[in-house]
Amino acid sequence: MTTRPAHPAARSIRTTPEGLMWEPSERWVRGRKGDVTVVDSRHPVLVWEPHLPVPQYAFPHDEVRTDLLRPAQNPPAGAHTGSRIFYDLHADGDVRANAAWTFPADDLAGHIAFEWFLRTDTGLDHWYEEEEEIFVHPRDPHKRVDALPSSRHVRVEIDGRVVADTHAPVLLFETSLPTRYYLPRENVRLGLFDATDHITRCPYKGTAEYWSWRGEGDVPPNIVWSYPEPLPAVAAIQGRVAFFNEAVDITLDGERLERPDTPFSRMLRKGSRS
C-alpha cells in the first residue's frame, strides 16, 4: 500500500513561481483512450494556468499508464505554461501526438497532465469523475451553476421582432458568465428558427442542440440552444430554450438589458461574418 501525504484540512489554492495555481482533489478520476484506461487516479491535482479560465488535472506518475507514453516527436512551443517535456500516447492501435506533458513547477513534480479530446484532437476519448462522464474540461470546485425557476417577465427580440415572451423562465446563474434565461418552448417562436447540426458539451450542463435565425439581418448562426437531457444538477432547464444575450435584445421586467461582452461575443461576431 502506498502512503501519501494527507490532503490539507482546509482546501487552499497554492501558487507556484511559474504562475500556476493548484490544489489537490479528492475525486476519483479516470481517462480512457478507446478501450484502454490510461489514467486511474484517486489523488488528482487541479491546475490552473495563467492564460486559461478553466482547470485541468495532473496525475501522479504511478496512477498513469506511463508505459504507453513516449517522448514527443514534435513537442509544441508555448502550449502550456513553461512546459518543455511532452509525450506522445501510443494506445489502442493509435498514436496521439503531445497528448501529455509535465509542468515545470517543483510542487507538481511527479505529475503528468493530459489533453481532453473534446478540446483538441490529441487527448483521451473519455473522462470520468467517480461514475459520471465529464466533458470538455474538469469542473471547477470554485465555480457555481444554479438553475432557479422564476416568475420574472422575460421578452426576447431580434431586430425589433419579439421571438419569445414569458413569465415562467428558469434563470441560470453561472460564475463569471451573464445570467442565461431558459424559457418554456411554448413561449418561444421556434418556427422562426431552423434546427442545425451544431452541438456543444458543457461539464456543468450536458449536451446542447442549436437553432439559427431564418430571418434577415446580421444575426450570427446558432444563437438559440436547449439541453434535452441536462445533468441532474440543472434538471430545471430540461427542454427549455435559451438565447445568447450577446446577440439578441432581452427585456427583463420592463428593463432592456445591455448586451454583455464575453468570449462568446467574439465567437458570435466571427460566426456572423462567415
Score class of each variant (00 low, 15 high):
Glu63Thr: 06
Val64Arg: 04
Val64Ile: 06
Arg65Tyr: 03
Leu69Met: 14
Arg70Tyr: 03
Arg70Ser: 09
Gln73Asp: 11
His80Met: 09
His80Asp: 04
Thr81Gly: 12
Thr81Ser: 12
Gly82Thr: 10
Ser83Asn: 09
Ser83Gly: 11
Arg84His: 07
Arg84Phe: 00
Ile85Lys: 12
Ile85Leu: 11
Phe86Val: 04
Tyr87Gln: 06
Tyr87Lys: 07
Asp88His: 06
His90Gly: 00
Ala91Asn: 12
Ala91Pro: 12
Ala91Met: 12
Ala91Gly: 13
Gly93Lys: 10
Asp94Ala: 15
Val95Asn: 07
Arg96His: 13
Arg96Gly: 05
Ala97Gln: 02
Asn98Gln: 00
Ala99Glu: 02
Ala99Ser: 10
Ala100Cys: 01
Thr102Ala: 07
Phe103His: 10
Pro104Ile: 03
Ala105His: 02
Ala105Trp: 00
Ala105Met: 01
Asp106Pro: 04
Leu108Pro: 03
Leu108Asp: 01
Ala109Pro: 00
Ala113Arg: 02
Ala113Met: 03
Ala113Thr: 02
Phe114Gly: 11
Phe114Cys: 11
Phe114Thr: 10
Glu115Ala: 07
Trp116Gly: 01
Leu118Thr: 13
Arg119Phe: 05
Asp121Arg: 13
Gly123Cys: 11
Gly123Arg: 11
His126Pro: 03
His126Met: 09
Tyr128Arg: 11
Tyr128Phe: 15
Glu131Ser: 14
Glu131Ala: 12
Ile134Gln: 15
Ile134Trp: 09
Ile134Val: 15
Phe135Arg: 14
His137Trp: 05
His137Thr: 10
His137Asn: 09
Asp140Lys: 11
Lys143Val: 14
Asp146Gln: 13
Leu148Ser: 12
Pro149Asn: 03
Pro149Leu: 03
Ser150Ile: 11
His153Val: 04
His153Tyr: 07
Arg155Tyr: 00
Asp159Thr: 10
Gly160Tyr: 02
Arg161Val: 14
Asp165Thr: 06
Thr166Asn: 08
Thr166Pro: 07
His167Pro: 03
Ala168Ile: 00
Ala168Asp: 14
Pro169Tyr: 05
Val170His: 01
Leu172Ile: 04
Phe173Pro: 08
Thr175Gly: 13
Leu177Lys: 05
Pro178Arg: 03
Pro178His: 03
Tyr182Trp: 03
Pro184Lys: 01
Glu186Asp: 14
Asn187Thr: 09
Val188Ser: 07
